[in-house]
Design a protein around this nucleic acid. Structure first.
Lengths: 338, 338
DNA sequence: TGCTGGCACTCGCACGCGCAGAGTGCCAGG
DNA sequence: CCTGGCACTCTGCGCGTGCGAGTGCCAGCA
């Protein structure tokens, strides 16, 4: 177990390194933080911290920098979440309030997060599966071609074109629309499959094919790989990443382009609160020198999706966590209102 | 007027520079292209080309690189558009065909363009104003709260929540829905304002406020700044930009985050064919060392939106132009089918 | 008039060197 | 267990040098 002072030394190292982006030495530490001991003592503590794997030297006779393990300890034990100030909170609220629709909400959220944290922001659209059906609309595009439109309580809208096996009359269409809505409206999307199973049976034989096709299209929209969408922004902040450029940001940009990777990244966070994944804790190789701070958001008690930021492991964790948490809270509010 | 051979020299310089990314000298030129003259002659031609401002030297006693003016001449006079090969065309078609909805089409197009050109791809969503109304749907969320859903022939869906000044009955809602659709369905969006002007007059006095509110919300979606959306991708390709990194790509990433800037960029292209804007021809400062290749796309004769790529001025213009043109063509087809 | 070979010249760049500065580890003393 | 002192190690930087690519110019030739 590390003594109290050694923890303080670690905290000081993390703070200084995050601030200066340069390895921090024993002398500088004692000058900037009044630890009440001499540099030599700090050096001993540093040696101990290095033995335990919390800090490392880039090369002999340079200062120390925190390791992933060091950041982990810092986040878990040494630092809390820094709450947003009142003006910041007001700014967040104002910024989000003008949104006209869900796309706009998500777009604004991304910009906001990117600006607040000065990092790359990632916002997942509300998951269909975890939302509630508000309405299902069916339109005839042609005698044997329909458009299916799904609307959720979070404002998300999905549309699909359905090619029918046989022409489908206006009366049947109205019938299907009514039956469908009476069954699924205000129900959770996840429950929809069970609710519509037997629907074709209510129709004349010639229409059953079309009804089945419509239903299977409806169910397809719930398939995981289709239903998840997300938006990213603030990639310009990557340029502040480090000095050894191309090699650092290349894999990050590549990872960010892979929606699948990002969704996994956000998905990994199980904690109900803010989750932090540091460096190698991220499964994806390209993100081994980045940290991901994420949190779920939702209109009610349950999270309908996640949002977060991706930045260098050397980031201001308390501030970032505070910003992410605050933004998630306000987005939830906005969604609940619409 | 430049002699034929000098034009050939310029063409050779552009091709070599694009290939090697290094200033090209007279000796290398004569070796790689059989111009039938000696390096000394080429040197004279180069001096002339430099006088005219088509090429420049990064520093004395280095090879030459093309200037923006040089690229311009190359694009206008010395090179055509390189058509895609048959396999490439098939690949494009296959890749786009699996799309389930408009978002998917746009997302796939972005990926495709980025991969084909190895540059940053930008795709604008079909403009509402230039599309045709397929359907307008109105849903009651609460007694005095409606959701307005617009669907276009290009598959674009917009939704807005409308807060009504007074409760609005189910009958009035059905009435409004029917009247609205009979007026605007299959009409061009741009004509909608004139078509609905007098609609409130058809309603009872107590409902007129609500009807007006709905209509003004409808018209608001057509306001330019709201209605334009776009998607970008392939930013990882920026890492291949140049060696002098941060300074080069920083402003580009920043510009790419500004939707307004991008929309202007695409908007500038007036030509019905592929438009190329080279280096300083781009109004935005951050993009002074990039070129933009863009083209309109649409389901029928008229373009409903634009797409293009952003890359270094040192790019393979014929190939990029070919890819952009081909992708636009196929996207148009896909949109027409849905 | 236009092309060619030859020649001197100019620079940028990579390399090697030495130096200063920061930071460390270790040890002996309080 | 803390402290001051000391010798050591390493990086980064500035500087001078040599090399090579590439140029401009000139005189000769078709």
């Amino acid at each position: 177990m590390l003594s109290e002072r050694r923890l303080q030394v670690l905290r000081a190292i993390v703070q200084d390194y995050v601030g200066t982006e340069e390895p921090v030495g024993s002398k500088a530490l004692t000058e900037r933080h009044n630890l009440g001991v001499s540099p030599a003592t700090v050096r001993n503590d540093m040696a101990a911290l290095e033995d335990e794997g919390y800090i490392a030297q880039p090369h002999t006779s340079a200062g120390r920098i925190p390791t992933d393990k060091g950041y982990r300890l810092f986040v878990d034990k040494l630092a809390g979440v820094k709450p947003m100030t009142a003006p910041e909170r007001r700014a967040i609220q104002n910024f989000l309030e003008g949104a006209v629709d869900l796309d706009d909400v998500v777009a604004r959220t991304v910009r906001l997060l990117a600006q607040l944290t000065r990092q790359v922001a990632v916002v997942q659209y509300p998951s269909l599966t975890r939302s509630t059906v508000r309405h299902v609309e069916l339109l005839a595009l042609a005698p044997a071609r329909l458009m299916l439109v799904l609307i959720t309580d979070t404002g998300r809208v999905e549309q699909r074109v359905v090619d029918c096996p046989a022409p489908f009359g206006e009366a049947s269409l109205a019938d299907l629309r009514a039956r469908l809505n009476s069954r699924v409206a205000n129900r959770r999307f996840a429950d929809v499959p069970g609710l519509v199973e037997d629907l074709p049976e209510a129709f004349e034989h010639e229409d059953r094919g079309t009804v089945s096709t419509v239903l299977s299209t409806l169910l397809e929209t719930l398939v995981e790989e289709n239903e998840e969408r997300l938006m990213i922004g603030g990639t310009a902040n990557l340029t502040r990443f480090g000095h050894d450029f191309p090699l650092t940001i290349r894999p990050v940009l590549e990872a960010l382009e892979e929606q699948v990777v990002l969704l996994k990244l956000l998905g990994e966070a199980k904690d109900p609160g803010v989750t932090v994944r540091i460096g190698h804790e991220n499964a994806h190789e390209g993100l081994n020198s980045t940290s991901v701070v994420s949190v779920g958001y939702g209109s009610g008690g349950e999270a309908v999706a996640k949002l977060g930021v991706v930045g260098p492991t050397r980031m201001d964790y308390p501030g970032t966590m505070g910003a992410v948490r605050a933004v998630a809270r306000y987005v939830g509010q906005i969604l609940a209102e619409s």
